[in-house]
Design a protein around this nucleic acid. Structure first.
Lengths: 206, 206, 206, 206
DNA sequence: AATGAATGAGCCTTCATTCAT
DNA sequence: GATGAATGAAGGCTCATTCAT
């Protein structure tokens, strides 16, 4: 009597996942604010009550999706940076990891651009802030020794993220907005180089 | 019967302006979506009907504010670039003009970050798109000759804006979000340099 | 162009009154909690928005009706007591005034029994408490000189109201509950006498 | 197989009682209508299903508590009247028994004031009515012979209860409402005397 | 130009109750 | 007896917008 894959079961609800999937689709198709619980319900087949049983509120769904996306983004960047042999590889890795995540999961990337400001102002703002704080701390901790060693320009910590990720973020935002632009992968090297040039110590600008 | 200054008039203080001022304040305090016409009405003392007489809809108010802010931003960038003697001065000017506008009018800068995505999806999207198109065309027109002359890296047009403005935009966004960060002016040079390094031809990386 | 009585006007809305009348009827027919805004709307022909425009909330309607009924009750008691030549007439007047109001407007009397506890726990509790405080102060101010003069038993103020109104209230509640009981008017004298006996100084028990 | 004390049972602490206790606490803290099954569940640790298994519905819980309280009240009054040597002692006993119960169990007394009107309109109204009928019949049966003997005023049965219990009820209600009033025990004699004076035959007004 | 009462579609959320395990 | 996920009807309330004055 394995409970793992019982084909007779009523479609293995796993309600939580169904609801999140439906919500994400609705949010992207109609926008976050305009999406109604009813629309989500209709799409995933759950009942209104079930949705509230699992997530408590519309904001709860939004936060769950948002935090998840943020984690995946962070993970991609962490993977691309882990074990970087040189500061240059590390900085480039951050950009490449970011761009790869955007291109791999453009759905969630676009969603995250939309959802983040909303969550940041909503009732789950604290959760998001905490997650962002951790991520930022890790990032700055990575930069610090390299700056101390002279491999990076001697700049205040707070400006590094913008110099490194700013261009990639800007381009990703524009691409996801739906113009006729080339996908981020096309500019992987350009954006990674720009990041390195922006923060590399002057004599390392090679 | 001058309509300019009639001391007998019941303090007819340019309704349009009052309404826009009140709306901007509400949008920033409460957020754009949550702001109701009633809230704007209460703040500026006008009647609901008067607001609709002047702007037609909530989106009308939003678009008026948004386009105005965008124009001011463009103007600041145009001023800082106009008559730039070298490509380097031009690129740096774009960044400096952008940052100066943000620092001079942080209220409207913050508002623009919030309003733009909404207007871009709202009924006045066309107006915004047209304005953005013009601005972008001017920008690219400025880049083109320098690229052709070899002063700039040979990159597709679409990537330039992100390389140049991306970091400044990223930092401005973070600063306006209200953390404990130093004002953009502190990083004027850093950000302007980064922009130039990102787009300068390799042998001009000085 | 008299605006006073234009027979062609669309039934002289006076929305506020219409809404209150409809609400009272619904509250009595279905109970207060079970009455929905929709039911009130349907009965008075106003729109949901109009109801909220005038009263702000369901509690607002309830409070308006409740306070109004309480005022009328107080007025009836005040009338019956005003200019009472003797303490006995005054005490009896309170009871008679109360009973007359109940019998004259049993609709509102029954409503008040139901509404008061709800309002006392709702968001408008303060309004009700203030009104009750004033009324009680007036009542006690009336009793005090008579007690001081020895016409009334020497009892703490707080017990007077229960001794005087308690029986009348108890009977009114039972009658309004809809049994087969005789109307309060039948027991006017009995209840008024009981009130006087309960508070009269021992040697005045005649 | 004693069902009384099974030491192996997982602290089976009489679910029914736990649920009723939790419900009573919730009803008093939050009000009856606002109390949700979920709130009761959280407080007593039982599951929703278990609550329904035992009581069938929210009204079932309410009725159980209400009827129980009413029985205790009746019992207290019956005890205080039982074996009363004179009509005066009997009448006074009703009042004293009522007040003693209120003071002994103010929690349930307050609850009963709130719950009774609700139960009287709810699906268990019949149970309550039957219980009230029995109680009233007993009361009137007690009064009847004394009235016939001339010890009590010659009044219709229906007015006796209000004359006797009205003041005590009125004061109890006010005290339980939470003001700064003295506890009912302070006025035991006053209220008992008032009851007797109200129903005693004229020549017995001593 | 101004006013503000009126409109009404629509939304988020609640909650008593059921039932498969 | 116990559990708790699931149900879904229903309700209070919001708010952009209209329009008669």
């Amino acid at each position: 009597m394995s409970s793992a894959t019982d084909p007779d079961a009523p479609a293995r609800p796993d309600r939580r996942r169904d609801i999140l999937d439906a919500a994400l689709a609705c949010f992207l198709e109609q926008g976050i604010e305009p999406t109604t619980i009813e629309a989500i319900r209709e799409r995933c087949g759950a009942s209104v009550g079930s949705i509230y049983h699992h997530f408590g509120s519309k904001d709860g769904i939004l936060a769950a999706l948002c935090l998840r996306a943020l984690d995946e983004q962070s993970a991609s960047m962490a993977r691309a940076t882990a074990g970087a042999p040189t500061p240059r590889d590390g900085v480039r890795g951050l950009v490449l990891g970011y761009l790869d995540w955007v291109q791999t999961d453009p759905i969630r990337a676009r969603f995250l651009f939309q959802a983040r400001p909303l969550v940041a102002r909503g009732p789950r703002a604290a959760d998001l802030a905490e997650r962002a704080r951790q991520r930022n701390a890790a990032l700055l901790a990575w930069f610090e020794p390299h700056r101390a060693s002279g491999a990076l320009r001697d700049l205040p910590c707070e400006i590094y993220p913008s110099l490194v990720i700013g261009p990639a973020q800007s381009y990703s935002r524009a691409w996801l907005a739906g113009g006729e632009m080339a996908p981020p992968a096309v500019y992987r090297e350009v954006l990674a180089d720009a990041a390195w040039r922006a923060v590399a110590a002057p004599d390392a600008c090679g």
